[in-house]
Design a protein around this nucleic acid. Structure first.
Length: 119
RNA sequence: AGAGUAAAUUGAGUAGUUGCUGGUACAAUUCGAAAGGAUGUACGAGAGGAAAGUCCGGGCUCCAUAGAGCAAAGAUGCUAGAUAACGUCUAGUGAGGGAAACCUUAAGGAAAGUGCAACAGAAAAUAACCGCCAAAUUUUUGGUAAGGGUGAAAAGGUAAGGUAAGAGCUUACCGCUAAUAUGGUGACAUAUUAGGUCAAUGUAAACCCCAUCUGGAGCAACACCUAAAUAAGAAGAUUAAGUCUGCUCGACAACUUCUUAAAUUGCGUGGCUUGAGAUAUAUAGUAAUAUAUAUCCUAGAUAAAUGACUACUUUAAACGACAGAACCCGGCUUAUAGAUUUACUUGUUAU
RNA sequence: GCGGAUGUGGCGGAACUGGCAGACGCGCUGGUCUUAGGAACCAGUGCCAACGGCGUGGAGGUUCGAGUCCUCUCAUCCGCA
């Protein structure tokens, strides 16, 4: 199993956020951009206003955990940035809700390959 | 018992599956321009009492091993001790609060100087409106500071004597100031004596004075490796500019500053965790703390590691409080569900 | 990590050396005018247990007296590397 590669630089994020396609879930928003490489990049960003550091960290972990579970079933060559919606309550974040959201988003964008086995 | 005061501890645990971070050992393979990194297996490790706020103090790094003088700016302010240091802590003193255990306290100087004290009031600091008394006699002069009224504050308080009326004018008691003695390291306390020239309010968290202290910037510091680039114009140059408060002196260094254009690479390396370290015992001390001995090594990330699922145990309750290390320590402050322990007080309530 | 600013009615925004808190503008409510609306003019407008008391983000303190001075704290915003 390969290690997930994170987006790091600020300009990389800006690239995805401005040029990428927007998809929306219940609590999560995603921007997806086709990069012409053979790898998938993951970016996470949660605003400071959402809540304190503990809960922000927790949401990041939950999203990353779900992503790594689904990573094998994804097509290659995309940069994905997940954002947390400002309106939704950060304290109510739950593993299963986030899983549903992410699967929804990935289905919409048609990146998921074998959706039946995952579900 | 209840109520209360002070101090301290804890902040669920165990096992399994899977996943993350870095460490050690072994084995080869691979990526990259290079520095350097990645992959597999095994072993053991992996957030807090506040990691927070950034309110103080120190280490460490660079600027000269951080230098001298004057000025400016800022901080602290009862005493003694502790400490690397502090605006912190401990023990006391004075003042204030509570029935008590106990708690609070920026607590130097107002005859060094300047300012301010609205409204009211005669007057807000060399006091005289009404009043009281005397003299002249109908509105003047002099004495006075009891009483009235104003105010947050009006020139020690109460009582007696005294007087034209009054007044520390005199006396007693209380307060105040000074000296001496005793006790204490000291702040200060107690006692005695003297002082009525014991007129001169409050405010220094108003300026200020006095004493003590403070050089600047911060791990995005700083050092190293690697890639690319090092062009043009202007100004200054041993008398300059720079080293981040100003001036003067002194030291360093050989180039410095500004503008425009281009570039500013890296899953780079070190700094990075053994330290004013932790735990236990003994000794000294009322205590903060210090000393000695023994044992232990306990996160080191960088778009940033602890997650997910399951079972069991303890529990009143286990999904449940506040909350995430970012160079490291000592404090302070603020947030905090629940549980536990120790010492002490008891007016009122109940027995 | 370092540094700075702000907080006053429903909103903007005054109040200087501490001395009557809410000037002024907008909004809102009621009235006049109008067939009706707008505009204009007039009056009112912080809260409460209401002849009094409490109110300048919060908690303390200094002072006779604090929006103003001091300490702690909360929230918001901004800058630098």
């Amino acid at each position: 199993m390969k290690k997930t590669i994170m987006l790091k630089k600020n300009y990389e994020f800006k690239n995805v956020l401005t040029k990428g396609k927007y998809y929306s879930g219940k609590d999560i928003e995603a921007f997806i951009l086709n990069n012409n490489k053979n790898v998938n990049y993951l970016g996470l960003a949660i605003s400071v206003k959402a809540s304190n550091a503990v809960i922000r960290n927790k949401i990041k972990r939950l999203i990353r955990e779900n992503y790594t579970n689904l990573e094998e079933n994804l097509k290659l060559g995309f940069s994905i940035v997940f954002l947390w919606k400002k309106k939704s309550k950060a304290e109510d974040a739950n593993f299963y809700d986030i899983r549903k959201d992410i699967i929804n988003i990935l289905k919409k964008s048609e990146i998921l390959e074998k959706k039946e086995e995952v579900l």
